[in-house]
């Protein structure tokens, strides 16, 4: 006879089992881990790996950290939103809800697994950058890289769960996740280096959202000029960027908890209820 499993053990088990599922789903593994590498490969092929004149860093030194962030965000935001919504549609979340597993343990397992995968994606990107494209990593800014990574990943995991919470069903989630992430990535210095000719309102918009703060904090930590100017490792923490991400993360978490559903919305009963509530709207329209 065994005793009641401890919460720590349960969380650990959930992380492991979510990881197993991820590795056995080739499509999501490809998009999260390989896809960002293709960008690095293509960008260095097209632009060469010389210094980008405005920035004073090589193409790879700019893109490896940017794409590491992009991979981490795919692993958390996009991945969590899509897989969680699909699991809800399939009734897996409802099945979990009928077991003694505390609901937060299941969510923690998903987020823990996504964080691990984000770390794998970022490590692969930086590792390939260092091994093949002469990317340099600086010890003095590395603590900032780790903290920025954790705050950023937490923020985008919360946003991913929020999308899963409010998406009507699993079919629409990839569209919602990509339609929000990709345009933002284009104005957040992920794919296109900062450009003095771009209209300033574009960068104001980008500054509102968390992605650019994640990217810029990462890029700075890999920029030899910036690193040289800050001799102490403490100087590398960029509290403004971290603060914006933390704010978004906490707000998303509160809303995700508020709106999260464990049962499919397309279910017979819920479907009927929704139609009934909509009726007055369609009549007045």
């Amino acid at each position: 006879m065994r005793a009641r499993p401890t919460l720590g053990r349960l969380v650990w088990q959930q992380i492991r089992y979510q990881n197993t599922i991820f590795w056995r789903t080739p499509a999501s593994a490809f998009f999260t881990l390989v896809f960002p590498l293709l960008f690095l490969f293509v960008f260095t092929l097209v632009f060469g790996n010389d210094d980008i004149p405005e920035l004073g860093v090589t193409t790879a030194q700019f893109y490896a950290p940017s794409l590491a962030v992009f991979g981490a965000v795919s692993a958390t935001y996009t991945n969590l939103a899509i897989t969680t919504a699909i699991s809800r549609d399939e009734g897996i979340l409802k099945r979990i809800r009928g077991t003694p597993l505390p609901p937060w343990v299941y969510i923690a397992g998903r987020i823990g697994s996504a964080t691990y995968l984000a770390a794998v994606a970022a490590t692969i990107m930086l590792g390939v950058g260092v091994a093949f494209y002469g990317v340099r990593i600086f010890a003095v800014s590395f603590p900032s890289v780790v903290v920025t990574f954790l705050v950023g990943v937490g923020c985008f995991a919360a946003l991913g769960m929020l999308v899963a919470a409010i998406a009507p069903n699993g079919d629409s989630t990839p569209a919602i996740a990509n339609a929000t992430l990709l345009p933002l990535a284009f104005i957040s210095d992920v794919f296109i280096p900062p450009n003095a000719n771009a209209p300033s309102w574009l960068s104001v918009i980008a500054d509102i959202f968390p992605l650019k703060h994640f990217v810029v904090a990462f890029q700075d930590a890999f920029n030899p000029g910036v690193v040289a100017a800050k001799p102490s490792w403490l100087d590398h923490f960029q509290w403004d960027h971290l603060g914006v991400m933390a704010l978004w993360g906490v707000a998303a978490m509160v809303l995700a908890i508020r709106y999260f559903k464990w049962e499919p919305r397309s279910g017979e009963r819920t479907g009927r209820r929704r139609r009934r509530r909509r009726e007055p709207v369609s009549e007045s329209a």
Binding site: M1, R2, A3, R4, P5, R9, L10, Q13, Y17, T20, I21, R24, T25, E90, G91, I92, K94, R95, G98, T99, P100, L101
Partner: peptide, 29 residues
């Protein structure tokens, strides 16, 4: 309690034994 609902998916990527082990681990006995 144990619940067997109709038409409820189980994680497709797991094997039969793995699923029983993962779900079993949530219970004391």
């Amino acid at each position: 309690i144990g619940i067997v609902l109709q038409e409820q998916a189980i994680e497709n990527q797991l094997t039969v034994t793995e699923a029983l082990r993962v779900y079993g681990s949530m219970y004391p006995h």
